[in-house]
Design a protein around this nucleic acid. Structure first.
Length: 845
RNA sequence: GCGGACGUGGCGAAAUUGGUAGACGCACGGGACUUAAAAUCCCUCGCCCUCUGGGUGUGCGGGUUCGAGUCCCGCCGUCCGCACCA
């Protein structure tokens, strides 16, 4: 023996065995407890990157561990295969998006297989497959018939060069991210999903998600943005009225103006008769929407000349402005301004010289004239407010709302920041929206028996725009209702719809339905979902909504799709760049081309000194990516997996390093030497037995908590202990146990060792992947000796090893007799002695 | 501006309810084996000093406590999310 572990050979051999035996295929009818482990499925962009490797390794360790602890594990993989990069590739390389995508899937699947993930490939799916998106169309129509889908005209970001709608996040500084063209606001008819119907449920549901990161729950909470207050109407002097929303009805007597958004109906009416108003509205629309611009942008208003009548008459009339800081799509698109107690209103009032009335007082300041430019938004008592005087803010709010409701000019209201989900995309490579537009019948759903509505293959991407829209035949169909000539909807669904239910399809994929309810409910919710924090809001909120919507219409009785969520950190790497002194142009260099001693960096080829950039997320633009495949070629899958788990806590970033992967590779070889040199020892080594059993328990707890770095550290400790120990039966057992403990992390090595040492042959199948996690002997978890600290005035002076459970007075006696202690106390008796049994003794001098 | 997280050696990091700070790994340094190299093994490794000992040390300044990385108050810094949300 005494050979080297040939990772390349072992990897391929065991991957083939797992494949042939379908070792990781989940059985729906298993009597075992179930665990559904899922990592966010990848977009098939071309090749697997290190972020994927880290993500899938974490899920894999948990999946393999759960199998070993007696669970039936569902751990599937698929492809989030629709999306813009495929169309971009089609435009640039003149290939079909489908062909490009499928080639990428083939490449990436082969790459994933080489990492030895315990995946159930029998359930593989791709969202671009009609068999998947056809069922999605059926679900969309279910939502449609249940009133959860509607069409409305809305203002969107339109890229005039690429001729498509862009999502907000695709607009950078007012320009399309791809074309660089100035984005226009355009009114388009779009399909929306009624996510706002579920706003309260989605918010309340967060409370039950105990195994989600607080951070993500908080982000969703803020995104949903529930506010409670009052909507009420001001009568207008010229007739009509304006409705405003406020969270501070208590400050109603501090109002000094009313303002409406630039695209508010009243603003439009005014503009129709007043060119100056129209001009002002144009000015508002031109304003940028980036964070920096908003921060510096001045509050601007246009006095319409209209006057709003305050509901509590004595204050009389308030001027009505059109203002650039009022948003049409929040609340009612109109506000009443209370300058003393809102900073924006304050800025506005000072600019236009409007009254600033104090109505909330923190101390005994009751002067109605509020001085200074900083609004008071803190707590206080109502003043200068008639019947509200003396109340605290909350009481005053309730009082005003009650009175508004009694008198009929307003009512308590809850407003959400969350808006309905616009799902129309002017794109080819997505799920066709299964609707037919008929001039006579309106929007008619495609009949179920005609699903899937399949994308036509014969399309070209030579000119911008949506190929579906200009396809010669595809969109021309007869109306299913009246058989008259009609048109297919040519928009496709936002790809986030595809990823809103794939986890259900993984659990159950019959041919004739999106899923079998009973089977899906056996597996769901996902026990542990793992992915990047960048999906904290979008994907995770959409998937929660979609699941609740399906529950609402009686398709599945699951409220929350993901019981446990973990957001892993990024894989980072040093970046290098140089900046051209004249043009300021930045050039990035691949780390492989650079010599770097930690301080100065220079190019290998030219010797030119360049700058070391930040250690940051691997990205193509920064050229600091490391392709996993050559690394797997060089070091084997287990070393790469080990690296992904070591050192950094999984939620934090992991810095890629050559020395790090080399260290992992050395450790894999070190393990192999232990396994390979296993011999039958005699006799008991109690200390090693303890270490072994403590490690079994500790590693199990760490894996359950996804603290892989700690599990790895404990395994290193056990290996160190085994290497130091002399031959014994305990040592032999420890090495055998070690094989099982590393099996979830380094499965190829573990299988090889398991087979080579004949461990597996006794059992049917013989794979370590099917072996049970070792049992812990609880008696061995308890130490019989403890090292206790001897402190004087809280400072450590010595340590002493005593039997566990040594009584207090015995410990005190040992401490007083200690040479270091006697020297420091110098004959004096301690004033006080604190003994913490089995931990320490502290003598207070 | 609002919300949140974090700050521990040269580096990544450990440290159950307050109880021996730095486990484990990486890097550096020294040594063994070797003709040599690789591989492997052993040792040192927070900082300072008058070095078989002592002092000091978890971003900074206070506080509580016999005892604080951990709890409280006030700062500083870094990162992330949201952002004119009435």
């Amino acid at each position: 023996m005494a050979s080297r572990f040939n990772a390349l050979k072992a990897d391929a051999a065991w991957q083939a065995v797992w494949d042939e035996r379908r070792t990781f295929a989940a059985r729906d009818d298993s009597p075992k407890p179930r665990t559904y482990v899922l990592e966010m499925f990848p977009y098939p962009s071309g090749r697997i990157h290190m972020g994927h490797v880290r993500n899938y390794t974490m899920g894999d360790v948990l999946a393999r561990f759960r199998r070993m602890t007696g669970h039936e594990v569902l751990h599937p993989m698929g492809w989030d295969a629709f999306g813009m990069p495929a169309e971009n590739a089609a435009m640039e390389k003149h290939v079909h998006p489908g062909g490009w995508t499928r080639a990428n899937i083939a490449t990436m699947k082969a790459q994933l297989k080489r990492l030895g993930f315990a995946l159930d490939w029998t359930r593989e799916l791709a969202t671009c497959d009609p068999d998947y998106y056809g069922h999605e169309q059926a679900l969309f129509l279910d939502l449609f018939t249940n009133g959860l889908v509607y069409r409305k005209e809305s203002s969107v970001n339109w890229d005039p060069v690429d001729m498509t709608v862009l999502a907000n996040e695709q607009v950078i500084d007012g320009r399309g991210w791809r074309s660089g063209a100035l984005v226009e606001r355009r009114k388009l008819s779009q399909w929306f999903l009624k996510i706002t119907d579920f706003a309260d449920e989605l918010l309340e549901g967060l409370k039950g998600l105990e195994h989600w990161p607080e951070k993500v729950k908080l982000m969703q909470e803020n995104w949903i943005g529930k506010s409670q207050g009052l909507t009420f109407r001001f009568a207008l002097s010229a007739g009509g009225e304006v409705e405003v929303f406020t969270t501070r009805p208590d400050t109603i007597f501090g109002a000094s103006f009313v303002a409406v958004a630039a695209d508010h109906p009243i603003a439009r009416t005014v503009a129709a008769a007043n060119p100056a108003a129209a001009e002002f509205i144009e000015l508002c629309k031109r304003g940028g929407t980036t964070a920096a611009e908003l921060e510096t942008q001045e509050k601007l208003g246009f006095d319409t000349g209209l006057r709003a009548v305050h509901p509590f008459d004595p204050l009389g009339e308030l001027p009505l402005y059109i203002a650039n800081f009022v948003l049409m799509d929040y609340g009612t698109g109109a506000v009443f301004g209370v300058p003393a107690h809102d900073q924006r209103d304050m800025d506005f009032a000072r600019k236009y010289d409007l009254p600033v009335r104090r109505v909330v007082s923190e101390g005994d300041e009751t002067d109605p004239v509020f001085r200074g430019d900083e609004a008071w938004t803190g707590p206080g008592t109502l003043v200068n407010s008639h019947f509200l005087d003396g109340l605290d803010i909350e009481d005053a709010k309730r009082t005003v709302i009650r009175r508004a409701e009694e008198e009929g000019w307003g009512k308590g209201a809850t407003v959400f920041r969350l808006r309905d989900w616009g799902v129309s995309r002017q794109r080819y490579w997505g799920t066709p929206i299964p609707i037919i537009h008929c001039d006579a019948c309106g929007a008619v759903p495609v009949p179920r028996e005609q699903l899937p509505v399949v994308l036509p293959e014969d399309v070209s991407f030579d000119i911008p725009g949506n190929p579906l829209d200009r396809h010669p035949t595809w969109k021309h169909v007869d109306c299913p209702s009246c058989s008259g000539p009609a048109r297919r909807e040519t928009d496709t669904l936002d790809t986030f719809v595809d990823s809103s239910w794939y986890f259900i399809r993984f659990a159950s994929q019959p041919g004739n339905a999106p899923f079998d309810r009973a089977v899906a409910e056996k597996w769901l919710p996902v026990a542990q979902y793992i992915g990047g924090v960048e999906h904290a809001i979008l994907h995770l909120l959409y998937a929660r909504f979609w699941t609740r919507a399906l529950q609402h219409i009686g398709k599945i009785d699951i409220a929350e799709p993901f019981a446990g969520l973990f957001t892993q950190g990024m894989v980072t790497h040093q970046s290098f760049f140089s900046e051209d002194a004249e043009t300021g142009r930045i050039t990035w260099y691949p780390p492989d081309d650079v010599v770097f001693d930690g301080k100065t960096a220079s190019l290998k080829a030219s010797g030119d000194t360049i700058s070391a950039g930040r250690v940051e997320k691997m990205s193509k633009t920064k050229k600091n990516t490391v392709d996993p495949e050559p690394i797997v070629d060089q070091y084997g899958a287990d070393a790469v997996r080990w690296f992904m788990l070591s050192d950094s806590p999984p939620e934090r970033d992991l810095e890629w390093s050559e020395s790090g992967i080399e260290g992992c590779w050395r450790f894999i070889q070190r393990l192999w030497r232990l396994f390979d040199g296993i011999e039958q020892g005699e006799g008991t080594d109690k200390a090693l037995d303890r270490k072994t059993h403590q490690t079994i328990a500790g590693v199990a707890a760490d894996i359950e908590a996804l603290s892989f770095n700690k599990a790895v550290a404990k395994l290193y400790e056990l290996v160190n202990a085994i290497e130091r120990a002399g031959p014994s039966a305990s040592r032999t057992a420890a090495i055998r146990t070690l094989m099982l403990l590393v099996a979830p992390m380094a499965p190829h090595l573990a299988e090889e060792a398991w087979a080579a040492t004949g461990e597996g042959s006794a059992k049917e199948g013989g794979l370590i992947a099917d072996a049970a996690w070792p049992e812990v002997d609880p008696a061995l978890l308890i130490e019989d000796e403890v090292t206790i600290a001897i402190q004087v005035n809280g400072k450590l002076r010595d340590t002493v090893t005593v039997a566990k459970g040594t009584p207090r007075d015995a410990i005190e006696a040992i401490a007083l007799a200690n040479a270091n202690v006697q020297r420091i106390l110098d004959g004096a008796a301690p004033k006080k002695v604190i003994v913490v049994p089995d931990r320490l003794v502290n003598l207070v001098a």
